[in-house]
């Protein structure tokens, strides 16, 4: 599945999130292609994606997207990311 991690600039927090999402996906046995995007290009990039992961502040900006958006509170908490990823793919 295609997962996009979205942050404001596409180089900072989304990179952090991507690392933890890749780890969580591999632990869950999900074959995931994880990419990053900034908020400006995220809506376009979302069209080819199965899931968007981002922070609460940016989720509102993406609310129009047809792709499901999952809000992550703590980008460093692999437990939270794993749990929410598992829930999203059920």
């Amino acid at each position: 599945m295609n997962i996009i991690c979205v942050c404001g600039m596409g180089i900072g927090t989304s990179v952090l999130l991507k690392m933890n999402v890749e780890q969580a996906a591999s632990q869950l046995g999900i074959d995931a292609d994880v990419t990053t995007a900034d908020i400006g290009s995220a809506k376009g990039a979302a069209q080819g994606a199965d899931l968007i992961l981002t922070s609460e502040e940016l989720a509102e900006e993406l609310s129009g997207a047809s792709t499901p958006v999952v809000v992550i509170d703590n980008f460093l908490d692999s437990g939270e990311i794993k749990e929410k990823l598992q829930e999203a793919i059920r």
């Binding site: 404001g8 900034d38 502040e57 460093l76």
Partner: peptide, 23 residues
């Protein structure tokens, strides 16, 4: 300016902010 525009999304975990802009 990034925080003014997009909000405090740079606070990625309890107590920790990753302040940045783009290249």
């Amino acid at each position: 300016a990034a925080v003014e525009q997009l909000g405090p999304y740079i606070v990625v975990a309890p107590g920790i902010a990753f302040a940045h802009s783009r290249p």
